Simulated assay, not measured.
Amino acid sequence: MSSERSGSNLLRTLIANHSQVSGPRAPHLLDVFADLCMYYDTSKGEDGYLKIVQDMIKVVNHPYYGWDLEVSAADLCEKEQPSSFLDCFQAIYNECARSTNSEYIICKENRLFDYAIPLFDHFKNSSFIYLYRDPRDYTRSWLKQPMGINSLQAAANTWSREQIACIRLRDVFELPVISVSYENLIEDPAQTMKGVLGHIGIEVESECFSTQKSDDPIVQNNEYWKNLNKPIDSSNKKKYKQYFEQKEIERVETAAKEQMVYLGYDLDTSADWTLPDRGFYQRVFSVMSRAWGYFRREVFGLNEVEDTQSSAKTETEKMISSVISLRNKVEYKRKKEWCKRKGANIDRVIS
């Protein structure tokens, strides 16, 4: 459980170096399918769940994720007999474990903390890792990326909200959680990973202490994963000091102050930034910018996915746009089927 840009792919990779663990790239099945699940006709039992598994296989086998599962949805359903959404989720991960002869799976899904309680109820022997990172470096990391959160304030607010969710699961609901700071992970990988593997309950292996160069071109060329192809950089912290001005640091610390203090991070400022009054021209420019984002799609006939694809410049952006396109095709198909069953107008439903 972690916020994006907090080192979760590094931690996933280190754990997956273990001989008994499979750590596939996260296809974010929970985020993609949890809300979409209502459009499948599960009243038909096996046939409804067959379609969920079928679509999940399509997503995980996309080149960006590269699971390469060589199983049909029908065969997998016959083997696993899913009777719920989480059964389908489990069937996919079980097949991944079988395909790599692994006993365990490390699951790194976006916003996994939103699903942690039902996951714990479903997977009785599950363990959770709460990974957190200095919000100032987290924010800097987002602002350097070509896609995703591009606002300092939005990043800081997101970090604060997501730490609250993880801390609540650990301290209020008392899930079996081990807390790991990104800074400790890169400073002393061996000691940190010994604690993680002990929490999971598996034997310590030294291969989990370092990254290994990958021959996978997706990893090699991905702007988000480029550090996985290098030795762990113990100095990759407090980089925000060279990137942000003091007032920007103060904005992040103001948004994240309570969680920072709770997690043991020192503040560099008084953390009492307030929003300055915007002048007339600043307000007009802000409104016009938002309006242009809407009208350019109307003028050029683009939907949100096509708009993303049209602005994609790098191979990483193009690959992510391709994933988004696949997800939207799956969503459209299942909503269309649902509308046909319900006698609804699909254009109104999707819009």
Rank of each mutant, 00 (worst) to 15 (best):
Q242F: 03
Q242K: 10
Q242D: 14
Q242W: 01
Q242N: 13
Y243N: 01
Y243F: 15
Y243R: 01
F244I: 02
F244V: 02
F244Q: 00
F244R: 01
E245S: 04
E245Y: 01
K247F: 05
K247V: 12
E248S: 08
E248K: 04
E250R: 10
E250F: 01
R251Y: 02
T254W: 00
T254A: 02
A256N: 04
A256I: 03
A256Q: 01
A256S: 11
K257W: 01
Q259S: 12
Q259V: 12
Q259R: 12
Q259W: 03
Q259K: 13
M260T: 06
M260L: 05
M260E: 02
V261F: 02
Y262T: 12
G264D: 10
Y265E: 08
Y265N: 06
Y265A: 03
Y265R: 08
Y265G: 03
L267T: 06
D268G: 04
D268E: 15
D268C: 05
T269W: 01
T269N: 04
S270K: 15
S270N: 10
S270T: 14
D272W: 01
D272Q: 14
D272L: 03
W273N: 05
T274R: 11
L275D: 12
P276S: 08
P276G: 10
D277A: 15
D277P: 07
D277M: 07
D277S: 14
R278P: 04
R278G: 07
G279E: 09
F280I: 12
Y281H: 09
Y281P: 03
Q282G: 14
R283F: 06
R283D: 12
R283Q: 14
F285V: 15
S286F: 12
V287A: 15
M288H: 06
S289Q: 13
S289Y: 08
S289H: 08
R290S: 13
A291M: 09
W292Y: 13
W292K: 11
G293Q: 10
Y294A: 11
R296K: 15
R297L: 03
E298I: 07
E298N: 09
E298R: 08
E298P: 00
E298M: 09
V299K: 06
V299C: 06
V299S: 05
G301N: 06
N303P: 05
N303A: 09
N303V: 10
V305E: 10
V305Q: 11
